[in-house]
Simulated scan of single mutants.
Amino acid sequence: MRQALRTASFQLLPGLAILAGLFLLPLSYFFVVSFWQVRTFRLRPDATLEQYARVFTEYGSTLAWTLAIATLIATVTAAIAFAYAHYCRFRAGRFGDGLIFLSLVTLFGGYLAKIYMWKTILGGTGALNSALMALGLTSGPIPALLFSPFAVIVTLTHYCLPLAILPVYGALRGLDDTAIEAARDLGASGPRIFRDLILAQARGGLTAAFALTLVITAADYVTPLMVGGPSSNMIGLFIQSQFGNRLNSPLGSAMAFVTIACCGLIVLTLSLTLRALTRPRT
């Protein structure tokens, strides 16, 4: 028994070393730096909460807007991912795995390629405006399609969707068809089967999909910069500015950790909500 535990511990060492070196140590460093200050362009190791106070006083509205739009994108993406994964698992038959593979192939298109694609589609002379004018639905291009929150939502949803589909489909693959058939034989209604079996089984995958999309969206600054407008500024733009232009890593670190903490609270709220919805009822 002890030998098996030692072998398992030894096998975990490379993964733990990578986790510590690439994630835990950098995060720990920037967490400590978030309590420091910058004076005359030099870091001063002062233990203060001033940077965290500035996040809420100077960037509170931007943070709230970021969390709102990120939550919306994560909700829409997770819902679409669940619908697609549900179809592939229960309706597509032998073509299900192929459809999942096709969704993952889109990841090879590249992040910037998708941004430029939607920038072209939503532009004044893009495919969408051209189609609307050709159908006589509009007399001219709709400027609000590009450089707007709508463009940010569409672009980030498109980018995150393949990443969200995978955990949901993986969770649904663990549900045995015989359990559904047994529930039907026992007289369970369609909505109850969906809630107590399918949604309960997909709860972990849905939470993972939502969390992944939320974190990616809340931290992104390239998409708002390229397809968003002045009303689409998100906290990622200001974090990048603190590190890249203003050389104020304490404030940038504090903004990042506040964003992470807020995203964690949102994910926890979703997890508790899904648990309450899928709790067995008599």
Rank of each mutant, 00 (worst) to 15 (best):
G244A: 13
A20G: 09
W118M: 04
N248D: 15
A4R: 09
L104M: 14
A164D: 00
A4S: 11
P143D: 10
A276G: 11
R89D: 01
A188T: 01
L13K: 01
T75Q: 05
L43T: 11
H86A: 07
M234I: 15
L268E: 04
V227Y: 01
G244I: 04
G126R: 03
G60W: 05
L19H: 00
W36R: 03
Y59L: 14
A68L: 15
R195V: 12
I266G: 05
C160V: 11
D220M: 08
L24Q: 00
A53L: 10
A74D: 00
Q201M: 09
L172S: 08
A208T: 14
V215R: 04
W36V: 13
A179P: 09
G190K: 12
A208W: 01
A85Q: 04
S249I: 11
P149F: 06
P250D: 11
Q3F: 06
L22Q: 07
G93P: 13
G126T: 14
R279N: 02
W118Y: 05
N245G: 12
G93N: 10
G229S: 10
R281K: 02
F82N: 02
L72Q: 05
L5E: 04
L156C: 10
A64Y: 08
M234L: 15
L25I: 12
A183D: 08
G60L: 14
A151P: 06
L22P: 09
P141R: 03
G236F: 03
L16R: 01
T138Y: 07
A81V: 08
V168N: 00
G204M: 06
I73W: 00
W65F: 13
P191L: 10
T278I: 10
F31A: 15
Y169H: 10
A209T: 09
L128P: 02
L128D: 03
T157E: 00
A4E: 07
S241E: 11
E181Q: 09
I121W: 01
T57H: 09
Y84P: 06
V38A: 13
V55A: 13
R281M: 06
P280Q: 03
L251V: 14
N129P: 09
T62W: 00
A254C: 10
R281A: 11
G204Y: 02
A47Q: 08
V258T: 14
Q11Y: 04
L145I: 15
L49D: 05
I216G: 10
F147T: 08
S241H: 08
L199R: 00
I165Q: 01
L175K: 04
S241Q: 14
Y87A: 14
T57M: 13
A151W: 02
I193W: 01
L102V: 13
G96V: 10
A81G: 14
Y29E: 01
P224Q: 03
N245R: 13
A78M: 05
T71Q: 05
L128Q: 04
L104K: 06
G204R: 03
H158C: 09
P191W: 15
H86C: 07
P250Y: 08
T71W: 01
L156M: 13
A134V: 12
A208H: 02
I153E: 00
L104P: 10
P141K: 02
M133G: 05
G170Y: 02
D177K: 07
L199C: 05
F30N: 03
L67F: 09
I260R: 00
L27C: 12
